[in-house]
């Protein structure tokens, strides 16, 4: 059992026993390898179900909206930034959430593990920066850093942006890592090449909306793709409709996305859907110096006007 899990249980038990919160939203051990399942605990006797490991990639901020309870939530750096965004957008009240901040070492990419493992993955153990993967063909050990999710490998904000209590020591940030290498690669392409790139990227999409639904930012009561009056987009497998869904979904995350990677992690077809949101995230940073969810004290760029906002695109 790792120290972080211990600490999270300890905090959860205390909060529930003292009646500070009605429920704790965290992760419990899943039924298949590399899966931790979001869960809630209301009874302090059950806090031992909570765990923390490299498989907690789903963003728990997604579970906080439209609830009445006072909640404690286990949140890594990116999750806390989404909670900040929720508070700014009046989706939750600050006093309604108690944030158990988790300084994060990054999440394990289950697809990378599957590709590197020898046969079917049976179990995955983390120990001292190593990951031991037991598969059908035998056991292999990897450096943890080699198995991180793409978004975690380029993370600038591993530590919570806002928290009431930490579940571990702060970790060293890595502000020098280049976040946008892949975006620049696409930017350098010609229009036709770009079109083709995204066509291929989306070719296996089945419109299951796991990316949208795993995203804490997507909380609209009715999504534009589901609207019928007017119907904005066809509901079949037409590539034009599929692309409309993906690029409009990304637009709705402009200036709000924290690159938590939930969308990509959730995609059953392994589509790198972050290619859409990342471009906007890069633009928000380069054009407005904005990173979403870093503070409760500033309004996001898309709902403020500053005389020095870039306007070169307007004729």
């Amino acid at each position: 059992m790792n120290a972080m899990t211990d600490k999270i249980r300890q905090i959860a038990r205390r909060l529930l026993e003292e009646g500070k919160v009605d429920m704790v939203v965290g992760f419990r051990k899943g039924t298949v390898p590399m899966m931790s399942e979001p869960c809630f605990i209301k009874d302090s006797a059950r806090v031992d179900a909570l765990v923390w490991d490299g498989n907690c990639g789903i963003n728990l901020a997604n579970y906080l909206t439209r609830r009445k309870e006072r909640m404690a939530v286990v949140a890594k750096g990116c999750d806390t930034r989404n909670i900040v965004t929720h508070i700014i957008e009046n989706q939750i009240r600050r006093e309604q959430v108690y944030i158990i901040g988790v300084p994060c070492q990054g999440m394990i990419d289950k697809r990378k593990v599957k590709n590197l493992a020898d046969g079917e993955v049976l179990s995955v153990e983390e120990k001292d920066g190593k990951v031991v993967v037991t598969a059908g063909g035998g056991e292999k050990s990897f450096d943890r850093t080699a198995l991180l999710q793409d978004n975690c490998a380029i993370c600038h904000h591993k530590n919570p942006a806002l928290s009431d209590e930490l579940a571990g020591e702060l970790v060293r940030e890595n502000p020098d890592v280049d976040r946008y290498e892949d975006v620049r690669k696409v930017e350098a392409m010609g229009a036709a090449e770009k079109w083709k790139f995204f066509d291929e990227l989306l070719s296996t999409c089945i419109r299951c909306y796991a990316c949208r639904n795993a995203c804490p930012l997507c909380y609209c009561p009715t999504c534009f793709v589901d609207e019928s009056k007017p119907q904005w987009v066809g509901k079949g497998q037409d590539p034009t409709d599929t692309r409309t869904f993906h690029f409009l979904r990304a637009f709705h995350c402009a200036g709000r996305c924290t690159d938590c990677g939930s969308c990509e992690r959730a995609c059953p077809m392994g589509i790198p859907v972050r290619q859409f949101t990342k471009k906007l995230e890069k633009d928000a940073k380069e054009l407005f110096g904005w990173e979403a969810g870093m503070t409760l004290d500033a309004r996001p760029p898309l709902d403020t006007f500053r005389p020095d906002d870039p306007g070169a695109f307007i004729k």
Binding site: N62, G234, G236, P268
Partner: peptide, 27 residues
């Protein structure tokens, strides 16, 4: 409790070989 973690995506039903539900749409 069972439903708490569910994010309401259609992954399970779309990947399922036995799920048959459909929609009828005019375009």
């Amino acid at each position: 409790d069972l439903a708490f973690a569910c994010i309401n995506c259609g992954t399970c039903t779309y990947l399922c070989p036995t799920c048959w539900c459909f929609d009828i749409q005019d375009e």
